[in-house]
């Protein structure tokens, strides 16, 4: 479910609306020549970072998702690459989260949800994979931090304990738990007391714990559904750094309402609107030279 928080850019670009709204109806293709809306003026910085070789891990083909016959995602084809962060952006209710949840078949938990089209993981149709096996390879972090009502240790060890055919002991688990917590940047804060109840951590720590929990099982693809929407800027920064670091080992897909966040962390951006994939491309291109009229309006802050 999307949050009701408007993307902050909307407010900043509010004065632009008057110039965009009465624009003459452009004919097909004419908008391509229109000057790009400049996100550079927004003062959000995009740190230079080294490129990592990108390998395609997942692919959706003509993916259609519907709730009770009402389509939420309409024929979307997208690649998901390891070594890159893919950001899904778009206004509320455009199908971003639905698309994300379908990638590890979580939509099937909703009784009315239906799906058509194909999703591939490493060239294999995910319908042919056993669903729990699939979800072990494609893990997910949710919008609201949802640590289980257990200790920090038990939370991180949860997937390792419950996935296998037999239950590993605490000693066996310890190195894995520590590694996951380190990767999520939480180790220094919680290492003193791993038996601390997870629900007593702060919101940012809880979300990082959820990321550590997802990482502990060594997934190949990590899905993030607006992971920072409930967090303060400091925690957001830590998690964004984490996401950028993680993309080398796992394919990362992030749904976000925060355009600046998408600009900061993503290598590729997919803009969705009303269930359609409007534009997909490298971040710089989508934000600075969008080919589609609606993308330009959206990233320019005209609507959301």
């Amino acid at each position: 479910m999307e949050s009701m928080t408007p993307p902050p850019v909307r407010r900043i670009a509010a004065d632009r609306r008057a110039t965009i709204a009465p624009q003459p109806l452009p004919t097909n293709g004419s908008h391509a020549q229109a000057p790009p809306a400049g996100p550079v003026t927004r003062g959000s910085s995009r740190p230079e970072r080294q490129r990592v070789p990108a390998i395609e891990r997942m692919r959706t083909e003509q993916l259609v998702l519907a709730y009770g016959g009402k389509p939420a995602v309409k024929g979307v084809s997208l690649p998901v690459r390891q070594g890159e962060v893919l950001a899904l952006i778009g206004p509320s209710g455009c199908g971003k989260t639905t698309l994300l949840r379908s990638l590890n078949r979580l939509t099937e938990l909703t009784p009315t949800a239906t799906r058509d089209g194909k999703i591939f993981l490493d060239g294999q149709d995910i319908d042919e994979l056993e669903v729990t096996q699939l979800r072990r390879r494609i893990s997910m972090v949710f919008q609201q931090p949802n640590p289980f009502p257990m200790s920090v240790f038990d939370n991180v060890a949860y997937a390792l304990r419950e996935q296998g055919k037999k239950r590993p002991g605490k000693r066996e688990l310890m190195p894995h738990v520590e590694e996951a917590l380190r990767r999520a940047g939480l180790w220094d804060e919680v290492s003193a007391d791993l038996s601390h109840p997870a629900l007593r951590l702060s919101g940012g720590q809880q979300q990082r714990l959820c990321i550590a929990r997802a990482l502990a099982a060594r997934p190949e693809v990590l899905l993030l559904d607006e992971p920072c929407s409930a967090l303060d800027p400091k925690s957001t920064e830590i998690i964004e750094d984490l996401i950028v670091r993680l993309r080398e080992e796992v394919a990362v897909v992030i749904v976000t309402h925060n355009l600046q966040q998408a600009y900061r962390v993503a290598d590729h951006v997919a803009f969705m609107y009303l269930g359609d994939l409007v534009e997909y491309g490298p971040t710089e291109q989508v934000f600075h030279a969008p080919t589609q009229h609606r993308t330009r309006e959206y990233v320019g802050g005209a609507f959301g």
Binding site: L109, R135, S139, F142, Y158, A159, E162, Q163
Partner: peptide, 15 residues
Amino acid sequence: VPRGWTEGAAALGVN
């Protein structure tokens, strides 16, 4: 039981 918890567990590949 909050859906966040059950979905969170399911998303980790637990049956």
